[in-house]
């Protein structure tokens, strides 16, 4: 109503992102935004990740097409950047591994012939950050994930949809958060 509203960058751990496979559009026309709904009910059109870039590879044939793997305490995100993400592709090309990186990007899914859905991230920006920023992100993402786990009792439409689709196990995700937080404490 108040014109254009920027999509929020959701906070999701790699494990939950990997366990997500439900996408939907909000609206009917081709310009309607696409969302990935995660098991705890995060409705993701954009996400913010900070983690360790542990692998990168140019898998392009004609032009550069970079694949990166970014690890957090719970697993890893796959990152793909090509000619339509020139800034991010350049950043990946220039970046050393391992390195702490912050990524703002869009979720993307790919379904293979067996029907398995793979999630990945198309970065809008990639920047090098320090270990403090990485730790802040882990705490930040833990907090948002806990909020969603607590809200699993609500009847918000996204939560209902997520629970119906994933049969979400609260303990699975609260223990994921606990372990991520404990890893933070051990490191300090």
């Amino acid at each position: 109503m108040a014109g254009y509203v920027r999509e929020v960058s959701r906070r999701v751990f790699a494990q939950e992102f990997r366990e997500s496979n439900l996408t939907f559009k909000d609206g009917d026309d081709q310009y309607s935004p696409q969302y990935l709904l995660t098991p705890t009910g995060a409705k993701v059109n954009r996400l913010f990740i900070v983690g360790t870039l542990i692998e990168k590879e140019d898998i392009g044939t004609d032009s550069e097409y970079w694949r990166g793997r970014v690890s957090d305490p719970t697993g890893s995100f796959m990152i793909y950047a090509g000619q339509y993400q020139p800034e991010a592709a350049q950043a990946l090309a220039e970046c050393e591994t391992p390195a702490f990186v912050a990524i703002v990007g869009k979720p993307s899914t790919y379904t293979n012939a067996e029907g398995t859905v793979f999630t990945s991230v198309r970065p809008e920006s990639i920047s090098i950050v320090d270990v403090d920023t990485r730790d802040l992100w882990v705490a930040d993402t833990a907090r948002r994930t806990l909020e969603r786990v607590k809200d699993l009792d609500n009847m918000d439409s996204n939560v209902v949809k997520a629970k119906e689709h994933y049969n979400t196990d609260k303990d699975h995700y609260s223990s994921m958060v606990r372990e991520a937080l404990r890893s933070l404490k051990e490191d300090l």
């Binding site: 542990i54 692998e55 793997r69 690890s71 719970t74 697993g75 391992p98 270990v131 990485r134 890893s183």
Partner: peptide, 21 residues
Amino acid sequence: DKLVTKFKVPLDEARRSVITY
């Protein structure tokens, strides 16, 4: 060690990354 200690990568991710390497 570099991945796990300095870059805080969980052991199984680090293991996967080392194997890939």
